[in-house]
Every structure is written in structure tokens, then in C-alpha cells.
Design a binder for these strands. Structure first.
Lengths: 249, 249
DNA sequence: CTGAGTAATTGATTTAACTCAAAGATTAGT
DNA sequence: ACTAATCTTTGAGTTAAATCAATTACTCAG
């Protein structure tokens, strides 16, 4: 019943039904082959895994899975972009993560117990994902324990990232939270400034940072007025990251 | 230099210097033997790991490690309680987690690269921890790949927990954040109400939830006035969790 | 290319949460 | 048990951010 509570009618399209063309390989899977979770697999094993997977096309705003649904698959993004979010009891939509091509998500489900998705996942624009059976990957790990190293390392990294995300959210004021978020978008070690692209529409970045879209807009306008960022659609140019950090105290 | 920036003079005691009695086993390590990361180790391997570890006593407020310090060990809490926190550039202390006896922490360092602590760790009261060399545990995993399963499962759980913590922090108002936090402290599936103990002093719970101590106090006073919780020091009795959830909308 | 629907901005107002301050309560250490 | 230090609570005033409302700018599907 938790699965049905959404009043959001946009999401009425079928969910998790792979009606697409049979899988024909060799487009868009280069990134998969170099992903930490897969790059050490022997070709045979990787091919077998891919054979057991399905390629799934998602339209703009199409829901991939719902919070609390049994999780039999995890996902690799071939193209497009997705977002993870939760709905609270009053229906407020809270964005938790965005996912770019080349990334995996819901991969912790491989070892979750019970295996249920912890949030909703939807396409932000038309996207293509590979839908990998949890069971298949797990069997691979069980049969070839040497593969576990990569998975462990990946999971450790994931845990660190989440910890870091949590840290940003303990920053008490909206402006500093936004600044920290922007700094983190810069390729690390950027001193001389650089351009970043918001991975989400502004209203969803706002949601991710626990503030209203209006607040987001005003803070950005203010940073712009102070010459700290230049804004062009979803692209932001940050001329002096150091100064930005100082301003956030 | 980041290591030295704290203006906090409380933390002048030596850090990470194990000057304690040689390790003599068989007190307080029962919990270790049943921890997911260790319970599947063969006795020989576990003993070897314990031999390579040192038991460390920490006094009240004593710092265990600093953010950005090279991480050669991870930890198991034998007794007491610790907290993880970060200091931002203006010296504001932001609490990220609290750790109880029987828990491991900094265990993601086993696979981190570079291995540096992501935050500070200090004892909240006098505590005892086991300081396990990252290298030793890693070698164990490399030599006995069958151990990896437990580690993977543990890491997956950790990632889910952090995700969940993040979710709470995307709740925009302080009252609802606090309510969500309290609900999560209840043993899961508690319907009829129950008592929870705050794992941190109130001012640090406030910091963990990105609010001021005064705000925390006022919200709690208000919940108390509405008969939603009864407060006794750091113990809270929540009579009707369901109603509390409803109130948080 | 066009228009409907969504997203973003800006202004005015209200409210929640912060800050400062001072008095109690609790805790840790002697 | 006592004392000093820290934590907690409460009050009053201020500020940051939310809300409400209206306009403008995008986006994308047809």
C-alpha cells in the first residue's frame, strides 16, 4: 500500500516492464566495461551478466521503481540522467541524489536484506539504463571471490560519499549549504575556478539542499551580484572557489 | 596544517598513542566475536587479527583521530561512546554520528584511497576501543576471499544507513527533523510506544540535526507540553509514535 | 515552429529559527 | 560530597528563510 500512496498522476506509466528491443550490445556499454564493479570481470563473466540483463528505455519523468518495491535488479545508466527521491507522508518530494551516465545505482541492493528499494527512481530526461539482476551479480561474486575486492572498494567509496553528503546537510544556513554543494561539484583540486553544470533542475537542487526554490534563486542571484558566480542556464562559472569558501565562513 | 587548525584547547592530549597495558584478551571482546565483520572469521584468523590490534583507553572528550589524518586503523568500540564530527573553516563543530559499544567505525578506510579519516572522532565519556590495523584486515580478506561476503553485506548496510540519515536532513523544518530522528531511535516496528535514550547530549543531537540547542530544547518542551513525549534526562518516552509521525505531516 | 505546461525569478509578507543573555540543572573530577 | 565546568532551559529581540502571489522564461512534444 505504501507503493500506491502517491497522488502524483504524472507517474502512471508502467513501471519496471522491459518491453524494449532484445539486447544487441556494443552501443553505450563501453562505460560499463570500465566501471569499477565490472572492469575486473573476465569477458566471459561480463558477457553472461550482460546477457541476463535488459536494456530499458525511460521517457522524461518516467518512474523506474518505487520506494519499498522488492528489489530484484540494480542499474547502470547508459544515457540520460535519473534522480533518486523519497515522498514523505504528506507527499512532499525530497530529492536525494542524481545519477549520470556511467554510474550505477541501487547496487547496495546486492547485499540488502530485505531487498527493497529505499527510494523512488525516475528519469529526468529520456534515458537508457541497464537492468542487472541482483541474483546474477551476486552469484558471480560467490563463484569468483576475487571479484569481491572491486565491489568492496566501490561500496566503501559509496559510503564515504554519503557521509560527505550528510556533512553538507548539517550546515545550518541555506547559503552555506549551497556554496558547499557548488564547491563539491567542481572537479576536485580546482583552484583557478571552473564551470560546473547543475546535475538537476534548480528546483530539485533546492529540494536536495532542503530549501525552497525561491530561496535557491535568491541566493544564486546574490552570489551573481557579488561577482562570485556567473550563471548561464544550468551552467555556473565559479571564478574564485577560494573566495566562495571564505564567504561561507 | 589542516590537522592543526583547531582552536579547541580541550584536545591537547596525545592522539593515537597506545600506551596501554599489553593486550590480554577475554574481556569485552564477546561483542567483537559476534560482529558481522568478524563472526565468520576462523578462530585462528580472528585471534591473529586481535593480536595485531591494540586496546586503547580514551578519557572523556579525548580525541582519537583528526580529520585528514592518514588512516592506518579502524576501530571497534568495546565500551563507552564516541562521536564523529567535523570542524568547518570557522571552527563550528558539526556532529555526524555517534557510536555505541559493539559498533565498528572508520571501517570504510579498509578500502579507501587515499586512506585519510573523513572527520574527527572523540570519546563522549571514558571509553575503550580496539584499534585494528587496516592492513591486517585487508590481508585477511585477500587471503580468504570467502570472508568478503560479510564485509560486502556490512558495507551495503552502512551505505543504506547513511542514505537514510541524508533523507532526514532533507526535511526542511527543525521540528519534523527532530521527530524523524526520534522515530528512528525507536526499535523498528515499535507501535505501542517505548523509551529511547539519546545517544548524544542534547546540544550534540541539535548539532547532528542542524539546529541550535535552544531550538532543540524548545521543540522538545513543546512535544512534552502536547503529551507526545515524556522526558527524563536523556531518556525519552514516546507514548504514541504514530501520532508523532502524523504531526510531522 | 508553436503553444501548453513547467520552471525560474522577483516582490511582499509572515513565520520559524537564530542570536544574545541569564538563570537553573547536571555532570565530572577532586 | 563539593565545586567547577558544562549543559539545558527560558525569555526577548532579530534575522533568515518560508509562504503567497504574480510575472517571465524555458522546454519539449506535437
Amino acid at each position: 500500500m505504501a507503493l500506491m500512496q502517491s497522488a502524483d498522476t504524472r507517474y502512471s506509466k508502467p513501471v519496471l516492464v522491459a518491453v524494449n528491443k532484445p539486447f544487441d550490445d556494443e552501443d553505450g556499454l563501453q562505460a560499463l566495461r570500465s566501471h569499477p564493479l565490472f572492469r575486473n570481470l573476465r569477458p566471459r563473466d561480463l558477457e553472461s551478466l550482460i546477457q541476463q540483463s535488459r536494456r530499458l528505455r525511460l521517457g522524461h519523468h518516467q518512474l523506474l521503481y518505487r520506494q519499498d518495491m522488492p528489489a530484484h535488479h540494480f542499474f547502470f545508466v547508459i544515457s540520460g540522467r535519473l534522480r533518486l527521491y523519497r515522498l514523505d507522508s504528506s507527499g512532499i518530494d525530497r530529492t536525494l541524489d542524481s545519477i549520470a551516465p556511467g554510474d550505477c545505482f541501487a547496487e547496495v541492493m546486492i547485499y540488502a536484506d530485505p531487498p527493497r528499494y529505499a527510494c523512488y527512481a525516475e528519469a529526468l530526461k529520456s534515458s537508457e539504463v541497464l537492468m542487472i539482476p541482483v541474483k546474477a551479480y551476486r552469484e558471480l561474486l560467490d563463484q569468483h571471490p576475487e571479484y569481491a575486492q572491486a565491489a568492496l572498494s566501490h561500496y566503501a567509496k559509496r559510503a564515504v560519499t554519503r557521509f560527505h553528503d550528510l556533512e553538507i546537510m548539517t550546515v545550518q544556513n541555506a547559503r552555506d549549504r549551497l556554496i558547499r554543494y557548488l564547491i563539491d561539484l567542481l572537479p576536485n583540486g580546482t583552484e583557478q575556478g571552473g564551470e560546473v553544470e547543475l546535475p538537476l533542475p534548480k528546483c530539485l537542487v533546492a529540494s536536495r539542499l532542503a530549501m525552497q526554490p525561491e530561496t535557491f534563486s535568491r541566493i544564486l542571484a546574490d552570489l551573481k551580484a557579488n561577482g562570485l558566480v556567473r550563471v548561464n542556464r544550468s551552467k555556473l562559472f565559479i571564478s574564485d572557489p577560494q573566495r566562495l569558501i571564505e564567504i561561507s565562513q
